[in-house]
Design a protein around this nucleic acid. Structure first.
Lengths: 182, 182
DNA sequence: TCAACCTGTTTGGGTTACCAAACTCGTTGG
DNA sequence: CCAACGAGTTTGGTAACCCAAACAGGTTGA
């Protein structure tokens, strides 16, 4: 089993992920990105952004031109695009497949975007592509619809009875007394 | 859009989540749980566990009996079970539905177990239950199989061409110039 | 011109969560 | 009997984060 502390040994932290994706978003949106813009966008102080970006500059992920305008290095852009793509895929997976309301899917995706492995994200992408390709199949649509969360059940307590039973079944199947410390 | 810092404003932190689930696991496994057991299990020092558990005791999540044996309060147990259930459900979702290898699914599930909303976890549970119930349907099985990640493609770069294209499509559909700061 | 304003940086503080190391305490084997 | 050991705690250090506040520079409008 894997070390549970892999949690915070990711390429970039949650904070760094948002700094990077924000810079890119600002560039796309308004053509430039400065410390103040990033701070406003993230809802934190300029001082915090200044310090964080100093680190990201030293790590070669963020570049600052002679006019204090920020942009991403090739590596920074690669990371930002990866995280952004993961967020979009996870959000779509939760929304399209599980039937979770979009705003909830978005919140969840935002929290986990930088933690999901490439492999799982790619698998989610593949699944969604397949879904899209066979969206014309009424049989599939019907089946999937029946699996999705009923839109009128957002407030049920977690875990519901059926869900809890399923989890217990899965746990037994899966665990032969091993260590869940992962 | 939601505040991106909801990240660390969860009922319990990643660390606390693991302390709680570890205590319960030790109780189930060996009938008791002490600070040293938790420390060994998590791979951190006794001092760290001692300090963390002091906080969890003050928050009323962990109880210590007169023999320094740890257990969870009702609330602590509720939280621990919730997190454990979420991990199992997410792991199963990634494994059964997306076709991700079990160890990868486990790692990912471990990282995000304490971040996923109740609603999404419940939806995952509902989806898996539906899947289980219709597992006898050969048509469904075939369709799902076709959507799953090919087992022989674990090492492709992320994001793959198709995945990236999908993400771009999703992004456009979804965003009408809004703010991805979630 | 120069005060007001915006920008970016630095500094001191607070939180969480880890470590190493020193310390206490109870049990236990020679 | 007591040295040695394991268990638990405390303490000082580190590293990310965040904040507020003070500062330094550049623009700009009156």
């Amino acid at each position: 089993m894997s070390d549970w502390r892999e949690f915070d040994q990711n390429p970039v932290s949650h904070s760094a992920a948002h700094h990077l994706t924000t810079i890119q978003w600002l560039l796309d949106d308004q053509g430039y990105a400065r410390v103040s813009d990033v701070a406003r966008h993230l809802g934190i102080t300029r001082g915090s952004v200044s310090v964080t970006l100093k680190g990201l500059r030293q790590r070669g992920l963020v570049v600052e031109d002679d006019h204090k305008h920020l942009s991403l290095s090739v590596e920074g852009l690669r990371i930002a695009r990866g995280i952004r793509t993961k967020r979009i895929l996870i959000q779509a997976l939760f929304r399209e497949v599980l039937g979770v309301p979009d705003n909830v899917a978005e919140q969840d995706a935002c929290k986990i975007e930088h933690l999901i492995s490439d492999q799982t994200a790619e698998a989610a992408g593949g699944f969604l592509i397949g879904l899209e390709e066979s969206s014309s199949d009424p049989q599939l649509a019907k089946v999937l619809q029946s699996l999705r969360m009923p839109p009128a059940a957002p407030s049920t307590n977690f875990p519901g009875v059926g869900t809890q039973k399923l989890a217990l079944r899965l746990e037994k199947k899966d665990s032969h007394g091993e260590d869940p410390s992962s």
